Computed example of a mutant assay.
Amino acid sequence: MTNLLNHLSEGPASAPPLLLGPSLGTSYALWDAVAPELSAAHRVIRWDLPGHGGSPADLIGPGATVADLAELVLALADSLGVERFAYAGVSLGGAVGLHLAVHRPERVSSLAVVCSSAHFDGAKPWQERATRVREEGLARLAESADARWFTPGFTVPRLVRDHRDADPEAYAACCDALAAFDLRDRAGEISAPTLLIAGREDPATPPAHLRELADAVPGATLTEIPGASHLAPAERPEAVLTALRAHFDGDAGRGMAVRREVLGDAHVDRAQARQTPFTARFQDFISRYAWGEIWTDETLSRRERSMVTLTALVAHGHYEELAMHVRAARRNGLTADEIGAVLLQTAVYCGVPAANSAFATAQRVLAEEADGPAAG
Protein backbone atom coordinates (compact mmCIF):
# COMPACT_ATOMS: atom_id res chain seq x y z
CA MET A 1 0.00 0.00 0.00
CA THR A 2 1.23 3.49 -0.82
CA ASN A 3 2.47 5.65 2.01
CA LEU A 4 1.49 8.87 0.22
CA LEU A 5 -1.66 10.93 0.41
CA ASN A 6 -4.02 10.56 -2.53
CA HIS A 7 -3.92 13.68 -4.66
CA LEU A 8 -4.95 15.31 -7.92
CA SER A 9 -2.62 17.54 -9.94
CA GLU A 10 -4.02 20.13 -12.35
CA GLY A 11 -2.39 22.79 -14.48
CA PRO A 12 1.00 23.02 -16.18
CA ALA A 13 3.82 21.16 -14.46
CA SER A 14 6.04 24.21 -14.98
CA ALA A 15 3.66 26.63 -13.25
CA PRO A 16 4.17 27.75 -9.61
CA PRO A 17 2.87 25.00 -7.30
CA LEU A 18 -0.20 25.57 -5.12
CA LEU A 19 -1.29 22.93 -2.60
CA LEU A 20 -4.95 22.79 -1.51
CA GLY A 21 -5.93 21.12 1.76
CA PRO A 22 -9.41 19.78 2.66
CA SER A 23 -11.52 19.97 5.77
CA LEU A 24 -12.33 17.06 8.08
CA GLY A 25 -14.87 14.72 6.51
CA THR A 26 -14.38 15.91 2.92
CA SER A 27 -12.18 14.91 0.01
CA TYR A 28 -10.33 17.05 -2.49
CA ALA A 29 -13.73 17.43 -4.20
CA LEU A 30 -14.19 20.33 -1.78
CA TRP A 31 -12.15 22.36 -4.28
CA ASP A 32 -14.00 21.22 -7.43
CA ALA A 33 -15.47 24.66 -8.17
CA VAL A 34 -12.22 26.54 -7.51
CA ALA A 35 -9.20 24.40 -8.41
CA PRO A 36 -9.67 24.24 -12.21
CA GLU A 37 -9.67 28.03 -12.44
CA LEU A 38 -6.63 28.35 -10.17
CA SER A 39 -4.84 25.86 -12.39
CA ALA A 40 -4.73 28.45 -15.19
CA ALA A 41 -1.77 30.07 -13.43
CA HIS A 42 -0.65 27.35 -11.00
CA ARG A 43 0.28 23.72 -10.74
CA VAL A 44 -2.57 22.91 -8.37
CA ILE A 45 -2.12 19.86 -6.14
CA ARG A 46 -5.10 18.99 -3.97
CA TRP A 47 -4.86 16.15 -1.48
CA ASP A 48 -7.06 13.88 0.64
CA LEU A 49 -6.77 13.39 4.39
CA PRO A 50 -5.92 9.87 5.55
CA GLY A 51 -8.98 7.64 5.28
CA HIS A 52 -10.79 10.25 3.19
CA GLY A 53 -11.31 10.11 -0.56
CA GLY A 54 -8.56 7.91 -1.94
CA SER A 55 -5.95 8.24 0.84
CA PRO A 56 -5.01 5.14 2.85
CA ALA A 57 -6.50 5.08 6.33
CA ASP A 58 -3.38 3.71 8.02
CA LEU A 59 -1.27 6.80 7.35
CA ILE A 60 -2.22 8.02 10.84
CA GLY A 61 -3.51 6.43 14.03
CA PRO A 62 -4.88 7.32 17.47
CA GLY A 63 -3.24 10.36 19.02
CA ALA A 64 -2.34 11.86 15.65
CA THR A 65 -1.39 15.52 15.49
CA VAL A 66 -1.55 18.28 12.90
CA ALA A 67 2.25 17.96 12.74
CA ASP A 68 1.79 14.36 11.54
CA LEU A 69 -0.54 15.54 8.78
CA ALA A 70 1.90 18.29 7.83
CA GLU A 71 4.67 15.73 7.44
CA LEU A 72 2.44 13.71 5.11
CA VAL A 73 1.87 16.83 3.01
CA LEU A 74 5.60 17.49 2.82
CA ALA A 75 6.22 13.87 1.83
CA LEU A 76 3.71 14.29 -0.99
CA ALA A 77 5.35 17.53 -2.12
CA ASP A 78 8.79 15.87 -2.03
CA SER A 79 7.53 12.96 -4.11
CA LEU A 80 6.32 15.42 -6.76
CA GLY A 81 9.56 17.39 -6.78
CA VAL A 82 7.94 20.43 -5.18
CA GLU A 83 10.29 22.26 -2.84
CA ARG A 84 8.51 25.57 -2.18
CA PHE A 85 4.80 26.10 -2.67
CA ALA A 86 1.83 28.35 -2.04
CA TYR A 87 -0.77 26.74 0.22
CA ALA A 88 -4.49 27.11 0.90
CA GLY A 89 -6.48 24.94 3.29
CA VAL A 90 -9.95 24.73 4.79
CA SER A 91 -10.52 24.03 8.50
CA LEU A 92 -8.20 21.11 9.36
CA GLY A 93 -6.44 21.70 6.04
CA GLY A 94 -5.97 25.33 7.10
CA ALA A 95 -4.48 24.19 10.41
CA VAL A 96 -1.96 22.15 8.43
CA GLY A 97 -1.04 25.29 6.50
CA LEU A 98 -0.58 27.28 9.70
CA HIS A 99 1.66 24.55 11.13
CA LEU A 100 3.78 24.48 7.98
CA ALA A 101 4.09 28.27 7.92
CA VAL A 102 5.34 28.28 11.52
CA HIS A 103 7.51 25.17 11.55
CA ARG A 104 8.66 24.90 7.92
CA PRO A 105 8.60 28.51 6.67
CA GLU A 106 11.20 27.75 4.00
CA ARG A 107 8.62 25.56 2.22
CA VAL A 108 5.65 27.98 2.21
CA SER A 109 5.81 30.93 -0.18
CA SER A 110 2.30 32.20 0.49
CA LEU A 111 -0.58 31.07 2.71
CA ALA A 112 -4.38 31.21 2.65
CA VAL A 113 -6.33 29.95 5.66
CA VAL A 114 -10.01 29.35 4.88
CA CYS A 115 -12.70 28.87 7.56
CA SER A 116 -10.09 27.70 10.03
CA SER A 117 -8.43 28.79 13.26
CA ALA A 118 -5.32 28.73 15.41
CA HIS A 119 -7.37 26.58 17.82
CA PHE A 120 -10.61 24.62 17.68
CA ASP A 121 -12.28 25.42 21.03
CA GLY A 122 -10.39 22.99 23.20
CA ALA A 123 -9.86 19.26 23.29
CA LYS A 124 -13.05 17.96 24.90
CA PRO A 125 -15.54 18.26 21.99
CA TRP A 126 -13.10 16.57 19.62
CA GLN A 127 -12.22 13.82 22.07
CA GLU A 128 -15.94 13.14 22.51
CA ARG A 129 -16.49 13.08 18.77
CA ALA A 130 -13.54 10.74 18.25
CA THR A 131 -14.93 8.32 20.84
CA ARG A 132 -18.39 8.44 19.28
CA VAL A 133 -17.07 7.78 15.79
CA ARG A 134 -14.90 4.88 16.94
CA GLU A 135 -17.97 3.33 18.58
CA GLU A 136 -20.70 4.16 16.06
CA GLY A 137 -19.03 4.88 12.73
CA LEU A 138 -19.84 7.93 10.62
CA ALA A 139 -23.35 7.33 9.30
CA ARG A 140 -25.18 9.20 12.06
CA LEU A 141 -22.67 12.05 12.18
CA ALA A 142 -22.92 12.51 8.43
CA GLU A 143 -26.63 13.18 8.82
CA SER A 144 -25.79 16.53 10.43
CA ALA A 145 -23.12 17.49 7.87
CA ASP A 146 -25.30 20.01 6.05
CA ALA A 147 -26.07 21.90 9.28
CA ARG A 148 -22.38 21.99 10.24
CA TRP A 149 -21.06 22.84 6.80
CA PHE A 150 -23.57 24.95 4.88
CA THR A 151 -26.20 27.64 5.24
CA PRO A 152 -29.81 26.38 5.41
CA GLY A 153 -31.06 24.90 2.15
CA PHE A 154 -27.61 24.40 0.60
CA THR A 155 -25.80 21.09 0.19
CA VAL A 156 -23.20 19.32 -1.91
CA PRO A 157 -24.19 15.64 -2.05
CA ARG A 158 -20.71 14.52 -3.13
CA LEU A 159 -19.15 15.99 0.03
CA VAL A 160 -21.81 14.54 2.32
CA ARG A 161 -21.19 11.16 0.70
CA ASP A 162 -17.45 11.57 1.26
CA HIS A 163 -18.17 12.24 4.93
CA ARG A 164 -20.27 9.10 5.25
CA ASP A 165 -17.69 6.98 3.40
CA ALA A 166 -14.61 8.12 5.33
CA ASP A 167 -12.77 5.57 7.44
CA PRO A 168 -13.97 5.94 11.06
CA GLU A 169 -10.59 5.24 12.64
CA ALA A 170 -8.79 7.74 10.40
CA TYR A 171 -11.55 10.31 10.94
CA ALA A 172 -11.24 9.83 14.71
CA ALA A 173 -7.46 10.25 14.47
CA CYS A 174 -8.04 13.56 12.66
CA CYS A 175 -10.33 14.55 15.55
CA ASP A 176 -7.41 13.77 17.88
CA ALA A 177 -5.28 16.15 15.81
CA LEU A 178 -7.85 18.94 16.12
CA ALA A 179 -8.17 18.32 19.86
CA ALA A 180 -4.43 18.89 20.38
CA PHE A 181 -4.03 21.83 18.00
CA ASP A 182 -3.38 25.30 19.42
CA LEU A 183 -1.02 27.62 17.59
CA ARG A 184 -2.06 30.91 19.19
CA ASP A 185 1.29 31.48 20.85
CA ARG A 186 3.19 30.93 17.57
CA ALA A 187 1.01 32.71 14.99
CA GLY A 188 3.10 35.87 15.26
CA GLU A 189 6.06 33.95 13.82
CA ILE A 190 4.39 33.43 10.43
CA SER A 191 6.33 35.31 7.78
CA ALA A 192 4.61 34.12 4.59
CA PRO A 193 2.11 36.55 3.04
CA THR A 194 -1.15 35.40 4.61
CA LEU A 195 -4.78 35.67 3.57
CA LEU A 196 -7.53 34.72 6.01
CA ILE A 197 -11.00 33.92 4.64
CA ALA A 198 -13.99 33.68 6.98
CA GLY A 199 -17.49 32.50 6.20
CA ARG A 200 -19.75 35.01 7.85
CA GLU A 201 -22.32 32.28 8.66
CA ASP A 202 -19.73 29.72 9.83
CA PRO A 203 -20.68 28.16 13.20
CA ALA A 204 -17.58 25.94 13.40
CA THR A 205 -14.86 28.58 12.98
CA PRO A 206 -16.73 31.90 13.23
CA PRO A 207 -15.21 35.10 11.83
CA ALA A 208 -13.94 35.96 15.31
CA HIS A 209 -11.45 33.08 15.00
CA LEU A 210 -10.08 34.51 11.75
CA ARG A 211 -9.99 38.03 13.20
CA GLU A 212 -7.93 36.66 16.08
CA LEU A 213 -5.48 35.24 13.55
CA ALA A 214 -5.48 38.49 11.57
CA ASP A 215 -4.43 40.37 14.69
CA ALA A 216 -1.63 37.87 15.36
CA VAL A 217 -0.11 37.20 11.93
CA PRO A 218 2.04 40.13 10.74
CA GLY A 219 0.56 41.82 7.68
CA ALA A 220 -2.29 39.32 7.29
CA THR A 221 -5.32 40.22 5.18
CA LEU A 222 -8.82 39.21 6.31
CA THR A 223 -11.78 38.66 3.97
CA GLU A 224 -15.26 37.82 5.25
CA ILE A 225 -17.65 36.19 2.77
CA PRO A 226 -21.35 36.80 3.33
CA GLY A 227 -23.67 33.87 2.75
CA ALA A 228 -20.92 31.34 3.39
CA SER A 229 -20.78 28.79 6.17
CA HIS A 230 -17.91 26.42 6.99
CA LEU A 231 -17.15 25.07 3.50
CA ALA A 232 -16.90 28.38 1.69
CA PRO A 233 -15.08 27.02 -1.42
CA ALA A 234 -18.09 24.80 -2.11
CA GLU A 235 -20.83 27.25 -1.13
CA ARG A 236 -19.38 30.53 -2.43
CA PRO A 237 -16.69 29.45 -4.92
CA GLU A 238 -16.71 32.70 -6.91
CA ALA A 239 -15.97 34.82 -3.85
CA VAL A 240 -13.28 32.42 -2.63
CA LEU A 241 -11.71 32.28 -6.09
CA THR A 242 -11.59 36.06 -6.36
CA ALA A 243 -9.86 36.34 -2.97
CA LEU A 244 -7.36 33.57 -3.70
CA ARG A 245 -6.49 34.96 -7.12
CA ALA A 246 -5.83 38.41 -5.71
CA HIS A 247 -3.63 36.89 -3.00
CA PHE A 248 -1.70 34.30 -4.99
CA ASP A 249 -1.65 35.67 -8.52
CA GLY A 250 -1.18 39.43 -8.27
CA ASP A 251 -1.18 40.93 -11.77
CA ALA A 252 -1.80 37.53 -13.36
CA GLY A 253 -4.95 37.07 -11.29
CA ARG A 254 -6.30 40.52 -12.10
CA GLY A 255 -5.29 40.00 -15.70
CA MET A 256 -7.18 36.73 -15.98
CA ALA A 257 -10.32 38.43 -14.66
CA VAL A 258 -9.99 41.27 -17.20
CA ARG A 259 -9.17 38.81 -19.97
CA ARG A 260 -12.43 36.99 -19.30
CA GLU A 261 -14.41 40.23 -19.16
CA VAL A 262 -13.04 41.42 -22.51
CA LEU A 263 -12.72 38.19 -24.49
CA GLY A 264 -15.44 36.12 -22.82
CA ASP A 265 -15.32 32.92 -20.78
CA ALA A 266 -15.71 30.61 -23.78
CA HIS A 267 -12.60 31.94 -25.53
CA VAL A 268 -10.46 31.91 -22.38
CA ASP A 269 -11.65 28.41 -21.44
CA ARG A 270 -10.59 27.14 -24.88
CA ALA A 271 -7.20 28.81 -24.54
CA GLN A 272 -6.67 27.28 -21.10
CA ALA A 273 -7.74 23.84 -22.32
CA ARG A 274 -5.03 24.02 -25.01
CA GLN A 275 -2.35 25.09 -22.55
CA THR A 276 0.64 22.79 -22.18
CA PRO A 277 3.82 22.97 -20.10
CA PHE A 278 5.49 24.38 -23.23
CA THR A 279 3.02 27.30 -23.52
CA ALA A 280 2.35 27.86 -19.80
CA ARG A 281 4.89 30.64 -19.29
CA PHE A 282 3.65 32.47 -22.39
CA GLN A 283 0.05 32.25 -21.15
CA ASP A 284 1.16 33.56 -17.77
CA PHE A 285 3.05 36.37 -19.55
CA ILE A 286 -0.11 37.38 -21.44
CA SER A 287 -2.25 37.34 -18.30
CA ARG A 288 0.30 39.17 -16.17
CA TYR A 289 1.47 41.91 -18.57
CA ALA A 290 -0.99 42.35 -21.43
CA TRP A 291 -4.13 41.89 -19.34
CA GLY A 292 -2.86 42.50 -15.79
CA GLU A 293 -0.93 45.72 -16.47
CA ILE A 294 -1.89 47.23 -19.84
CA TRP A 295 -5.61 46.50 -20.06
CA THR A 296 -6.07 47.44 -16.38
CA ASP A 297 -4.42 50.85 -16.85
CA GLU A 298 -7.24 53.40 -16.49
CA THR A 299 -5.53 56.06 -18.62
CA LEU A 300 -7.50 54.75 -21.60
CA SER A 301 -10.99 53.29 -21.43
CA ARG A 302 -11.63 49.77 -22.68
CA ARG A 303 -13.51 51.27 -25.65
CA GLU A 304 -10.42 53.26 -26.58
CA ARG A 305 -8.15 50.26 -26.09
CA SER A 306 -10.36 48.24 -28.41
CA MET A 307 -10.03 50.92 -31.10
CA VAL A 308 -6.23 50.93 -30.77
CA THR A 309 -6.10 47.14 -30.81
CA LEU A 310 -8.26 46.82 -33.92
CA THR A 311 -6.03 49.28 -35.75
CA ALA A 312 -2.82 47.48 -34.76
CA LEU A 313 -4.18 44.09 -35.79
CA VAL A 314 -5.22 45.43 -39.21
CA ALA A 315 -1.81 47.04 -39.68
CA HIS A 316 -0.04 43.73 -39.11
CA GLY A 317 -2.58 41.55 -40.91
CA HIS A 318 -3.53 39.48 -37.85
CA TYR A 319 -7.05 38.75 -39.04
CA GLU A 320 -7.73 35.74 -36.80
CA GLU A 321 -7.02 37.87 -33.74
CA LEU A 322 -8.94 40.71 -35.38
CA ALA A 323 -12.07 38.55 -35.35
CA MET A 324 -11.58 37.88 -31.64
CA HIS A 325 -11.12 41.58 -30.91
CA VAL A 326 -14.13 42.62 -32.98
CA ARG A 327 -16.14 40.51 -30.54
CA ALA A 328 -14.21 42.09 -27.67
CA ALA A 329 -14.91 45.57 -29.05
CA ARG A 330 -18.64 44.83 -29.04
CA ARG A 331 -18.31 43.58 -25.46
CA ASN A 332 -16.49 46.82 -24.60
CA GLY A 333 -19.37 48.89 -25.94
CA LEU A 334 -18.45 49.76 -29.53
CA THR A 335 -21.30 49.73 -32.04
CA ALA A 336 -21.01 48.15 -35.46
CA ASP A 337 -20.87 51.66 -36.98
CA GLU A 338 -18.00 52.64 -34.68
CA ILE A 339 -16.08 49.50 -35.60
CA GLY A 340 -16.65 50.33 -39.27
CA ALA A 341 -15.34 53.84 -38.71
CA VAL A 342 -12.17 52.46 -37.11
CA LEU A 343 -11.61 50.14 -40.06
CA LEU A 344 -12.25 52.96 -42.52
CA GLN A 345 -9.54 54.96 -40.72
CA THR A 346 -7.16 52.03 -41.23
CA ALA A 347 -7.79 52.19 -44.97
CA VAL A 348 -6.10 55.61 -44.99
CA TYR A 349 -3.09 54.75 -42.83
CA CYS A 350 -2.68 50.96 -43.23
CA GLY A 351 -3.74 50.56 -46.84
CA VAL A 352 -6.90 49.64 -48.73
CA PRO A 353 -6.07 45.93 -49.17
CA ALA A 354 -5.55 45.52 -45.41
CA ALA A 355 -8.79 47.35 -44.66
CA ASN A 356 -10.62 45.28 -47.28
CA SER A 357 -9.63 42.06 -45.51
CA ALA A 358 -10.46 43.62 -42.14
CA PHE A 359 -13.96 44.62 -43.29
CA ALA A 360 -14.56 41.06 -44.52
CA THR A 361 -13.49 39.63 -41.16
CA ALA A 362 -15.53 42.14 -39.15
CA GLN A 363 -18.62 41.65 -41.31
CA ARG A 364 -18.51 37.90 -40.74
CA VAL A 365 -18.16 38.32 -36.97
CA LEU A 366 -20.94 40.91 -36.74
CA ALA A 367 -23.23 38.71 -38.81
CA GLU A 368 -22.54 35.75 -36.51
CA GLU A 369 -23.25 37.95 -33.51
CA ALA A 370 -26.52 39.13 -35.01
CA ASP A 371 -27.62 35.51 -35.45
CA GLY A 372 -26.69 34.60 -31.88
CA PRO A 373 -27.52 35.95 -28.41
CA ALA A 374 -27.44 39.70 -27.97
CA ALA A 375 -24.09 41.05 -26.90
CA GLY A 376 -23.80 41.80 -23.19
Rank of each mutant, 00 (worst) to 15 (best):
M1N: 13
L5Q: 12
H7Q: 06
P16D: 05
P17M: 09
L19S: 01
L19Y: 00
L20W: 00
L24Q: 01
W31K: 08
W31H: 07
W31E: 06
D32S: 12
A33I: 07
P36Q: 03
S39W: 02
A41V: 09
H42F: 15
R43L: 01
V44Q: 00
R46G: 02
G51Y: 04
G54M: 07
A57M: 10
V66I: 14
V66G: 01
V73D: 09
A77W: 08
S79R: 08
L80G: 09
L80D: 12
V82R: 02
F85S: 03
A86S: 15
G89K: 04
S91W: 06
L92G: 04
G97V: 01
H103L: 04
R104C: 06
R104A: 08
V108Q: 03
A112P: 04
V114I: 14
S117F: 03
S117C: 09
A118G: 15
K124W: 10
P125C: 07
T131N: 11
V133T: 10
R134V: 12
L138P: 15
A142M: 00
A142N: 00
R148P: 06
T151N: 11
P152N: 11
T155S: 15
H163F: 15
R164N: 11
D165L: 15
P168R: 01
P168C: 06
C174I: 04
A177S: 10
A180V: 05
A187N: 12
G188T: 07
S191Q: 15
P193N: 09
P203I: 03
T205R: 14
P207F: 08
P207W: 09
P207L: 05
A208S: 13
A208V: 13
R211M: 10
L213D: 09
G219P: 08
A220H: 03
L222K: 09
I225V: 14
S229T: 03
H230L: 06
L231V: 14
A232I: 00
E235C: 01
E235L: 05
A243V: 03
R245D: 14
H247M: 02
G250K: 03
A252I: 05
A252N: 05
A257H: 14
E261A: 14
E261L: 11
L263P: 12
H267P: 01
V268K: 08
Q272F: 07
Q272L: 13
R274N: 12
Q275A: 11
Q275D: 07
T279M: 04
F282N: 07
Q283T: 11
F285E: 13
G292R: 01
W295E: 03
V308K: 02
A312V: 11
G317M: 03
H318Y: 08
E321F: 04
L322M: 05
V326G: 10
R327W: 09
R327I: 10
R331V: 07
V348M: 12
Y349I: 03
G351F: 03
V352W: 14
P353D: 02
P353Q: 04
A354H: 15
A355C: 06
N356L: 07
F359M: 00
F359H: 02
R364N: 13
V365N: 04
D371H: 12
A374N: 10
